[in-house]
C-alpha cells in the first residue's frame, strides 16, 4: 500500500538520502512530513543565526535513522535542536561553530574531570580538532551525532575519552581505576565522620570493601557503581536496564545489603580486633550505609 510519489518535499529529501532498504519503513511512518517540518523548525528556532540548508539537515538525519527494531517513536524523540547544531557544525558553518564552542564545549568542560598531568585546554583543543575538523580527510566526528540523547552528553563522552587517551597508550590506565576512597564513598558520600576512621582501619575497610565487591556479581557491582558512585538516578538506570524503576531500585538495595554482609565478613577476618572493636567498626559501616541509604535512595 505504498502511496505514489506524493511525499512532501522534506520526506522526498529524506528518502533521497536514506538507504533504499529503509524506504518502506519510512514511508510507513504516519505524519512523517509534519514531523520533519517540526524538527526543522525547532532547529531553526533554537539557532536562528545558523544557516543550514534543509537538504543538509535531512541528509544528516537520513544517515542516523534509528536501527530497525528500535522503539517506534524514536524518530519523534529526536533532539532536533541539538542535531541541527551538530549538522551545521559538521558542515563547518561559522556561526554554528561559535555557538557550539559557547553553548556546548565550554559547559562540557565545567564537568570534565581530567586526569593528572593532562590539561583541560589540551583536551578541549584535541576535542575541537576531532569533533569539528575531522582527521585526514575523514568527516568531522560531530557528524556521527545521532540526535538521540543530548549533544552535551555525547560530547562529554567523546571528550572524556580523549582526556584518557595518552594514558591509555602508555598502558598506565591503572591510575584511573577507582581509588579506595571512591569505594568508600559508595557507602557514604561527603560524610565527615568517615575521616574519623584511623588511617589503617580505613585501609582495611577499603580492602574489605574491595574484596567484598569482587565477590558481587558483575551486575550487582555495576548497579552499585552506577547509582552510588556515579550518581545516576533510578529512572535512568531503569531506562538502561529496560526494567521498571521499582525492580531496579530493589536490585540496587539488594546489592547493597549483600555488599554490607560480605564487607562485615571480610572485616572480621582481616582485623583481628577484639569483639568490641570489631563491633564498633561494623557499627560504623552499618551507620554509613543507613545514612547513605537514607540520602541517596530517597
Amino acid at each position: 500500500m505504498t502511496s505514489p510519489e506524493t511525499h512532501g518535499p522534506l520526506t522526498a529529501l529524506l528518502l533521497a538520502h536514506a538507504p533504499p532498504e529503509r524506504h518502506e519503513w519510512l514511508r510507513a511512518l504516519p505524519g512523517l512530513e509534519g514531523l520533519l517540518e517540526e524538527h526543522l523548525a525547532k532547529g531553526r528556532a533554537a539557532w536562528p543565526s545558523v544557516e543550514l540548508a534543509p537538504e543538509h539537515f535531512l541528509r544528516h538525519l537520513a544517515r542516523h535513522l534509528p536501527e530497525e527494531g528500535a522503539p517506534p517513536d524514536t524518530l519523534h524523540q529526536l533532539r532536533a535542536a541539538d542535531l541541527y547544531l551538530a549538522c551545521a557544525c559538521a558542515g563547518g558553518e561559522p556561526q554554528a561553530l561559535e555557538l557550539f564552542e559557547r553553548h556546548v564545549l565550554q559547559k562540557v568542560s565545567a564537568r570534565l574531570g581530567t586526569p593528572p598531568g593532562v590539561s583541560l585546554d589540551e583536551v578541549l583543543q584535541v576535542a575541537r580538532q576531532r569533533l569539528l575538523l575531522g582527521v585526514a580527510g575523514s568527516a568531522p566526528k560531530i557528524a556521527e551525532f545521532s540526535g538521540r540523547g543530548s549533544l552535551s552528553g555525547w560530547v562529554r563522552i567523546v571528550t572524556s575519552r580523549i582526556a584518557r587517551e595518552p594514558l591509555g597508550q602508555d598502558g598506565r590506565q591503572e591510575l584511573f581505576s577507582e581509588p579506595p576512597q571512591a569505594l568508600e564513598r559508595m557507602l557514604s558520600r561527603d560524610d565527615p565522620e568517615r575521616e574519623f576512621l584511623q588511617a589503617h582501619s580505613r585501609q582495611v575497610l577499603s580492602e574489605s570493601l574491595q574484596a567484598a565487591l569482587a565477590e558481587l556479581s558483575e551486575r550487582e557491582r555495576a548497579l552499585l557503581r552506577l547509582h552510588h558512585l556515579h550518581g545516576l538516578t533510578m529512572d535512568r538506570i531503569a531506562t538502561m536496564y529496560g526494567e521498571p524503576r521499582s525492580s531496579v531500585a530493589r536490585h540496587v538495595a539488594q546489592a547493597r545489603e549483600r555488599l554490607l554482609k560480605l564487607t562485615r565478613r571480610e572485616l572480621a577476618s582481616r582485623l583481628k580486633l577484639d569483639r568490641q572493636e570489631l563491633e564498633s567498626l561494623l557499627g560504623f559501616v552499618q551507620s554509613r550505609l543507613d545514612l547513605s541509604l537514607h540520602r541517596l535512595m530517597a
Binding site: R111, S150, G153, R156, I157, S160, R221, L226, H230, L232
Partner: peptide
C-alpha cells in the same frame, strides 16, 4: 557496560546534567 568501569563512568558523564 556492566563489566566495563570506564563505560560506566562515561554513561554517567553522558547522562543529563541534573544527575551524576
Amino acid at each position: 557496560v556492566e563489566g566495563c568501569e570506564r563505560c560506566q563512568e562515561l554513561v554517567a558523564l553522558g547522562a543529563s546534567s541534573t544527575e551524576g
